[in-house]
């Protein structure tokens, strides 16, 4: 097995770091860093939803916002909503919605704001990971956490968790599949594809990521536990 440019094996994820409760004024918040990609997530609510026409009397709704900060990339990223950020907000919402239960809060909203302070590939996955921790920290009823990571194809080999350099190899032609999963049921809540892979490769990727997702899940859980056991060590 050939080593990757940063010395990882094909199944290794980048260095992980996570912390819950980083934003004081939010009802729940989290920081998640994978390699050089860092995401902050803040959760507000459940709270009253305005404008009123968006309210759903059957259940509360989840509203996600994905935003890359202007300084997060090597070249300045123009602030404000874009086609890309709108899409990623939507896929983030769809990735998280299957685990959260907002039926207790009709007409209300849970807002999730994801801000990317550093981006080096895999930012939507980092955002989802951070948002899952933040939602749990906010005391939202959810049946599981959601870990997410991408799988790419380099030199016809599947590799887990591409970084920026790998993603930009071969004139940005590296195929890339971000995947999010509900660990307890094994259901996938995010599956997109950029580039071309064969059906078999995609199916293989789905099983290949599982150890990586478990590793991320462990870090997510630990972040939540550390938040409330801080004082005990003192």
């Amino acid at each position: 097995m050939t080593k990757r440019h940063d010395g990882r094996s094909n199944l290794d994820v980048r260095k992980l770091q996570a912390k819950a409760g980083v934003i004081k004024k939010a009802d729940g918040s989290a920081y998640f860093k994978i390699g050089n990609t860092a995401a902050y997530a803040a959760v507000y609510g459940p709270r009253e939803l305005h404008p009123k026409f968006m309210q759903n009397p059957r259940t509360g709704i989840l509203r996600c916002s994905y935003n890359m900060l202007p300084f997060s990339t090597t070249e300045r990223n123009r602030p404000g909503p874009s086609r890309r950020s709108k899409e990623l907000s939507l896929v983030t919402q769809k990735a998280l919605l299957p685990v959260v239960d907002l039926s207790e809060y009709p007409n209300a909203v849970v807002d999730v704001f994801i801000e990317l302070s550093e981006t080096d590939a895999g930012s939507r996955c980092a955002g989802i990971c951070a948002a899952a921790i933040a939602l749990a920290d906010a005391g939202i009823t959810m049946k599981d956490l959601v870990p997410a990571v991408s799988v790419g194809l380099i030199n016809n080999e599947l590799v887990v968790d591409l970084d920026g350099e790998e993603e930009h190899m071969n004139e940005n032609e590296t195929p890339d599949v971000p995947i999010a999963m509900i660990p307890s049921t094994g259901e996938y809540t995010l599956l997109q594809m950029d580039g071309i892979m064969t059906k078999d490769q995609v199916l293989e990727a789905l099983t290949l990521v599982k150890p990586a997702l478990q590793e991320i899940l462990k870090v997510q859980k630990q972040a939540l536990k550390d938040r409330f056991s801080e004082g005990e060590q003192k």
């Binding site: 729940g28 749990a136 906010a138 005391g139 409330f228």
Partner: peptide, 21 residues
């Protein structure tokens, strides 16, 4: 399905919330 402290009384298992609105 919620973050909290585990409490077991007899057969009943529940969690006491630590955060949230």
């Amino acid at each position: 399905n919620r973050l909290g402290l585990l409490q077991v009384s007899g057969k009943v298992v529940k969690t006491v919330p630590l955060s949230g609105v």
